[in-house]
Design a protein around this nucleic acid. Structure first.
Lengths: 209, 209
DNA sequence: ATAACTATACTCCTAAAGGGGTATTTTTTG
DNA sequence: CAAAAAATACCCCTTTAGGAGTATAGTTAT
C-alpha cells in the first residue's frame, strides 16, 4: 500500500475532536493533517498545503459547516470533504450534498465503519450514512420541500416570520406600520407560494424548516 | 490527596465517548468506571457497584437521558449525575435539573474546564454551563411556560397535535370521526387553557415546547 | 427604456375560526 | 352509588382569514 491518507478534522467540540483524532492516528492508513475548532481556522490551515480528506462538522459557532464548505470550494480546495454531523435533517443533507460534499456521515457511526467509509471516499465513492440515504432520491427529483422559502421576497419573509410567531394580520400590520389589507395580500401570496391551505399549516411548515 | 474519582460515561456516540474516556484517563484525579452506549447498558453497569460520577448524554436512541436519569434515581443510585449534552433548550435544562441532575454541561466545553467542573461537582456543587445558567431563575420562579400542556385531557392533546400539524377543524373532525362542532369546542377549551389568542399562536407555542 | 417585480391599498365576497350558551352521554373518581 | 370530569353535539353570533380582482408608485433587471 501507498502512503497514509492525511486528514484535517474540523469540529468545534474539543471532546469529539479528541475522539476523532485519536481514531485517525490509531489506524495505520491515516495520519492527522491537523485539527480546527472553527471554519476560519480550517481555512487558515489550508493556506499552505492540503490534506487528502477534510472531516467537517455542521452546526459550528460562527462560520457554519455549509459556509465553510462553500469557502473551501471557492478557494479551490480539491481534498475530499466529508460531513460528520449529528443532524439528519433532510434540509441539511440536501444542501450539503448539492454544495459538493463527498460524503455525509452521522456522528453515531461506529469508529471502524467511519474509517472504512473514509477509505471508500478516497476511492472516489460518495459515502452516505444509511439513515440519511433515503433523502438521496429527493436530491435527484429536486424541488426541495422548502424550496418555496427561497422564492420569498424580503418583505414576505418578514411577514412569514411574524405569522410564525402566531400573530394575527392586524397585529402584523401594526408592527410593520402598513394596512391590514396589505398584510392580507402578502399572506395570500405566501399561501400560494407555500402551497398551504391555512396560515397555521404554513407556520408549522416554516418552523419545521 | 485521596483516591481518584471513578466515572461512568454514557453516550450513544462512540466517537465522542472515546474522546471523553481518553480525557478522563489522562487525568490522575479520575479513573474510568466504564462506558455505556445506551441508557439500559448504563443501568446494567450499575447493578453491582457504583461510580462516583455518571456523565450522561441526552438525545440518546432508545431510552432518553431523562428516562435514564429517572430510572437511576429510582434504583437508588447516589452517584453524582452530570448531564453532558449539545442541547441548550430551556425545556431540557429545566426538566433535567428538576429531575435531580447534579450538573448540566454542554459538549463544547473545553476539556480542561470539564475536568474542573467534575471536581467541583464532587465537592457538592451543582455545575452549570454558563450558556444555560440564565435558565436557572426560571427554575426557581417555577410555573413553566408550558405547564398548560400538562393540564390537557387526552382528547384535547390529540386535537392539539392535529391542530399543530396545520389541519383545519373540518379535517380534524374527519380524522377523529366526530362533528366539526365538537372539534370547535375542544379548540375553544384549548385556547382558554393555553391562554392563546389564535390556533396559530397555540400551534407555535406547542411546537416550541 | 420598457418590462418585470415588489410593496402598497383598496373592493367584494365566502369560508373558517372563535366566543357564548345549553344539553346529553359516557367515563372517571371519591 | 353519587358527584365530577370528559366527550359529544347543537344553537347563535362576531371576528378573522382567505380568494379574486383592480390599481398605483417605486425598484430592478434586461
Amino acid at each position: 500500500m501507498g502512503k497514509p491518507y492525511s486528514v484535517l478534522v474540523v469540529d468545534d467540540h474539543p471532546l469529539l475532536r479528541r475522539g476523532i483524532c485519536q481514531l485517525i492516528t490509531s489506524d495505520g492508513d491515516f495520519t492527522l493533517f491537523g485539527e480546527a475548532g472553527t471554519g476560519l481556522d480550517a481555512l487558515t490551515a489550508l493556506s499552505d498545503n492540503e490534506p487528502d480528506i477534510i472531516l467537517l462538522d455542521l452546526n459550528m459557532k460562527g462560520m457554519s459547516g455549509l459556509d465553510t464548505l462553500n469557502a473551501m470550494r471557492q478557494e479551490g480546495v480539491t481534498a475530499r470533504i466529508v460531513i460528520l454531523t449529528v443532524s439528519d435533517a433532510k434540509q441539511d443533507v440536501i444542501r450539503l450534498l448539492r454544495a459538493g460534499a463527498d460524503g455525509y456521515l452521522l456522528k453515531d457511526t461506529e469508529p471502524e465503519l467511519l474509517l472504512e467509509q473514509l477509505k471508500k471516499a478516497m476511492l472516489g465513492h460518495r459515502v452516505i450514512s444509511e439513515e440519511v440515504e433515503a433523502y438521496m432520491y429527493e436530491l435527484k427529483n429536486a424541488t426541495d420541500d422548502n424550496q418555496w422559502i427561497e422564492s420569498l421576497t424580503p418583505r414576505e419573509l418578514q411577514i412569514l416570520q411574524e405569522l410564525a410567531e402566531g400573530k394575527s394580520n392586524r397585529v402584523i400590520s401594526e408592527d410593520l406600520h402598513i394596512s391590514e389589507g396589505t398584510v392580507k395580500v402578502h399572506v395570500k401570496n405566501l399561501l400560494r407560494k407555500a402551497n398551504a391551505k391555512s396560515r397555521t399549516e404554513m407556520a408549522v411548515r416554516y418552523l419545521n424548516q
